[in-house]
Design a protein around this nucleic acid. Sequence first.
DNA 1: AATCGTTCCTGATAGC
DNA 2: TGCTATCAGGAACGAT
Length: 282
Amino acid sequence: MPELPEVETVRRDLEKAIVGATIADVWVSPRWASLAHTKFPGHRAFRQRVVGRRIERLERRGKYLIFRLDSGSLIFHLGMSGQLLVSPKSEIRNPKSEKHRHALFIFADGRALRFVDPRTFGELHAVSDLLELSALRSMGPEPFDETFTWRRLADVLRKKRVKIKAALLDQRVMAGMGNIYADEALFESGIHPERRCATLTNDEVRRLRRAVRAVLRRAIASRGTTLTDSRYRDAFGNAGGHRPKVYGRAGEPCVRCGATIERGVMGGRSFHYCPKCQPRPT
DNA sequence: AATCGTTCCTGATAGC
DNA sequence: TGCTATCAGGAACGAT
């Protein structure tokens, strides 16, 4: 599913493809507009905010992709099955022809951007101020920002009572982690997912911060993770080349020590770990 | 205030 | 073969 590396890959793809383009027309599916959780402002209001706007910059904040327009911003979240795909000029674009396509942006040069999302957990917002989104107001530091120091992370974790895996998924602790890379970062740092945050030593927090960065950096370099269940695709429809070391590998051997990778459930969410490299808390 | 459980949704898969 | 049940996940929300 799209986490920071996948969203960053799409951002980089789109940066090359559509910065400078003008949105000549936009179509949003009736179904998308009717989904209560999308908080869609209505076709008319959305059109009014978007049509005629020029895309000035593409930014990413956590798992949110932000199109800075000459006036206001367009914000996407890919949820767990969202795709943003650039269509070449030649492609025929009947709004009804593609399953699960919820939005279609047509540029002045004839190309198009399609927002496809089968599970509809994605988000689509047109705002004048990014802080209109509560998730962006409360979001924690970007993992590659200089403010993301191990000391600050230790300060946050010391006060928390939850398990470290749950804290990594909390976007207020740090931005952009999802289920795959949280498991990968914990494996990389040798920390069991069920450890309580406050029990982590300074050395473990240092290792964790380092692992978060290393895992994300490598995943970006491989253009993200595509698994059978997550049909993640970049902006041109290509799968990512990253292969997790523990996520989705329960029953398979640990790449480091050969022990069998195990799977557990925490708060309705799965986690994966090596019982030898990541000793269980006592 | 922090945390927990539930909700939204569809496709893949397992089981009968 | 064809049906039904289960599972997967991010963020928001209500309850505790």
